[in-house]
Measured scan of single mutants.
Amino acid sequence: VGDQVLEIVPSNEEQIKNLLQLEAQEHLQLDFWKSPTTPGETAHVRVPFVNVQAVKVFLESQGIAYSIMIED
């Protein structure tokens, strides 16, 4: 199991704000291929294997929908 690319769908401005804060966490080494800008629009982010669980827990705790787009 390696890195994953998640497709994330924020449903409101609050969730977009939370994702932008997540993007700013440099220690997570997230690679946003497509940043969140509009509710209902997908964002794509590559998550290093060591941080996959932490990111998924965060998304679930914020009620942000996501799916695994690419499993490496």
Rank of each mutant, 00 (worst) to 15 (best):
K17F: 09
E60K: 05
E26T: 14
E14S: 08
E71A: 11
F58R: 02
Q62C: 15
E7N: 07
T37C: 06
Q53E: 14
L19P: 00
L22R: 02
K56C: 10
E7Y: 10
K56N: 02
V9T: 15
E14R: 07
T38G: 08
V5I: 13
P39R: 03
V1Y: 13
M69V: 11
F32Q: 02
G2I: 10
S67G: 06
L20W: 09
S35P: 15
E60A: 05
I64V: 03
D72Q: 11
A24C: 08
N18E: 11
E23R: 15
T38H: 07
A43I: 15
D31E: 15
I8N: 00
P48T: 04
S61D: 08
V47G: 01
A54R: 08
E26W: 13
D31P: 02
H27W: 12
E13Y: 14
E60W: 03
V57C: 13
E60Y: 03
G63R: 05
Q21G: 08
G40S: 04
K17G: 06
E60T: 06
T38P: 02
I64K: 00
Q29E: 06
K34S: 07
G40M: 06
V47P: 01
G63P: 00
W33S: 12
G2D: 07
P10D: 01
R46W: 08
E41H: 05
V5L: 09
V9G: 02
L22F: 08
A24V: 07
V52M: 10
P10A: 06
V52D: 02
Q53N: 12
L28S: 03
K34R: 06
V47M: 02
T37F: 08
A43E: 01
V1Q: 15
F49M: 13
Q25W: 11
A54Q: 09
L6Q: 01
S67M: 08
I70V: 11
L59I: 02
E23L: 14
P39A: 06
M69N: 04
V52L: 14
K17M: 09
I70G: 13
I8G: 01
S61N: 11
G63T: 03
A24K: 11
P10K: 01
A65Q: 12
L6K: 00
E13L: 12
Q62R: 14
I68A: 05
E41P: 02
H27Q: 08
K34M: 05
P36V: 08
F49P: 04
Q53C: 11
I68H: 04
A24D: 07
E13R: 07
S11H: 09
V9P: 00
V50C: 13
Q21A: 13
E60F: 03
L20Q: 11
V57F: 13
V47A: 02
K34V: 09
L19W: 01
S67E: 08
V57Q: 14
M69Q: 06
S61A: 13
Q25A: 11
S67A: 07
L19E: 01
Q53V: 09
A65R: 11
Q25G: 05
M69A: 06
T38V: 13
V5N: 07
E7D: 04
I64R: 00
V47T: 02
D31G: 07
A43P: 01
Q4E: 08
L59G: 00
Q21R: 10
D31T: 13
L30K: 01
L22I: 05
K56T: 09
Q21Y: 14
S11D: 09
L28T: 03
G2P: 08
V45R: 00
P10T: 05
E14P: 03
A24T: 09
V55M: 06
N12G: 04
N18D: 09
L22Q: 02
N12P: 00
N18R: 11
P39I: 09
F49A: 15
L59V: 01
Q4H: 08
A43N: 05
T38K: 13
L19F: 03
A24S: 09
H44D: 01
I16G: 01
V45S: 02
D3P: 05
W33D: 10
P48H: 05
N12D: 11
D72W: 15
L28Y: 08
E71M: 07
S11G: 07
I68T: 07
A43Q: 04
R46L: 11
H44V: 15
P48A: 06
E23I: 14
V9H: 09
V1T: 12
D31I: 14
H27F: 09
R46E: 03
Q15D: 08
L59F: 03
R46C: 12
S35W: 12
V47D: 00
A65V: 09
F49Q: 14
E13T: 07
I68V: 12
F32H: 02
V47Q: 00
Q62F: 15
I8L: 08
E14L: 11
P39V: 11
D31F: 13
H44C: 15
V5P: 01
A43Y: 15
I16A: 03
Q62T: 07
P39Q: 04
L20T: 05
S35Q: 14
L22T: 02
P36N: 02
L28M: 08
T38F: 10
D3R: 06
A24G: 09
N51K: 07
G63L: 06
D72Y: 15
V50P: 10
K17P: 01
A43G: 04
V5Y: 11
Q21S: 10
D3W: 14
Q62I: 10
N51D: 05
P36W: 03
V50W: 13
L28Q: 03
A65C: 09
A65S: 09
I8P: 01
E26A: 11
Q21N: 11
F49V: 11
N18A: 15
G2A: 07
G63M: 06
N12E: 03
L22S: 02
E13W: 15
F58D: 01
Q21F: 14
H27N: 10
K17E: 09
V45I: 10
F49L: 13
P36A: 12
E41I: 07
A54M: 10
Q21H: 12
A43S: 09
S35F: 13
N51Y: 13
Q15F: 01
P48Q: 06
Q4T: 14
E41N: 07
S11C: 14
A54V: 12
Q4D: 03
L59R: 00
P48R: 05
M69C: 13
N18G: 12
I8V: 09
E23M: 15
V9Q: 06
F49S: 14
N18C: 15
E26L: 13
I64G: 00
E13D: 11
W33E: 12
E60N: 07
V45T: 01
D72C: 15
I8D: 01
R46P: 01
E23T: 10
Q4N: 05
E60G: 03
S67L: 06
T38L: 10
G40Q: 04
T38E: 09
Q29Y: 09
Q62A: 13
Y66F: 09
W33F: 15
H44G: 04
I64P: 00
E13V: 10
E14N: 07
L22D: 01
L22K: 03
D31M: 12
I68W: 04
T42P: 15
V45Y: 02
L22C: 04
E14K: 08
G63A: 04
Q53W: 07
L30M: 05
H44S: 09
Q21W: 15
E23V: 15
K34G: 05
Y66K: 00
K56I: 15
A54S: 07
Q25L: 11
K56R: 10
I68Q: 05
E41C: 08
I8Y: 01
I8W: 02
G63E: 05
F49K: 12
E41Q: 08
I16C: 09
S11M: 14
N12T: 14
E60C: 04
V55H: 00
V57I: 12
Q62E: 07
V52I: 13
D72I: 15
L22H: 03
T37K: 06
V55L: 10
F58N: 01
K17S: 08
E7V: 14
E23Y: 13
